[in-house]
């Protein structure tokens, strides 16, 4: 069995779960659903929950889609999560107070992985909040010396998320043909 994976990251509410759902062959699984039996009897707690989706290419080939836990405090596990990953999809929410701070935080946290592989950035909720615009995000990426693709997306849209993944794959190898 050949297993590869794509990591989706970004702040809480940026659309990681939705984006995984948009392209997954299965209904996304959230790991905390499986921990709920353990936790419900105690005081309120949050589980380190990863979203999981899957694209089956054949009986012997699968691409796993992992969404990182939303709580930034768990960034110490991201190094492990990214091992063997094809690339990173960073989702940013344009309605957040400082999405550039989010961009800096996540690109810094995943810097090694991004430099080794590739990153694509999807900005969600630009229909609700027009500013900052993509030009501002491009400037921010430039200041971080990251020439990554950055697109406005609707995380619910199969087409938009597919386009992000296309950009990721072509960035990894422009010689790929479909």
């Amino acid at each position: 069995m050949i297993n590869r994976k794509i990591i989706f990251t970004g702040p809480v509410g940026a659309g990681k779960t939705t984006a995984i759902a948009a392209i997954s062959d299965i209904k996304p699984i959230t790991t905390d659903e499986y921990a709920s039996d353990m936790t419900k009897s105690r005081k309120p707690q949050t589980t380190v929950a990863m979203d999981y989706g899957l694209i089956r290419l054949s009986d012997k080939e699968r691409v796993h889609l992992y969404g990182t836990p939303g709580q930034e405090r768990f960034d110490f596990m991201w190094d492990i999560l990214t091992k063997g990953g094809i690339g990173l999809v960073l989702l940013l929410d344009n309605t957040r107070k400082d999405p550039f701070q989010d961009m800096r935080f996540y690109t810094n946290a995943f810097r090694d992985f991004i430099e080794k592989q590739q990153m694509v950035v999807g900005v969600t909720r630009m229909d609700l909040q027009h500013k900052p615009g993509l030009a501002d995000y491009r400037q921010c990426l430039e200041s971080l010396s990251l020439p990554s693709p950055i697109f406005e997306i609707d995380a619910r849209s199969h087409k938009d998320v597919t386009m992000l993944i296309q950009a990721l794959l072509f960035s990894l190898d422009p010689g790929v043909t479909n």
Binding site: R4, K5, D32, M38
Partner: peptide, 24 residues
């Protein structure tokens, strides 16, 4: 002690832990 990187290893015993943390 951490399991193998998620979704990569084919080791049959590999498991992803569900870590419960109190965020309060």
């Amino acid at each position: 002690s951490f399991p193998q990187p998620f979704g990569v290893s084919a080791k049959p015993a590999r498991k992803l832990r569900s870590l419960v943390i109190d965020l309060s």
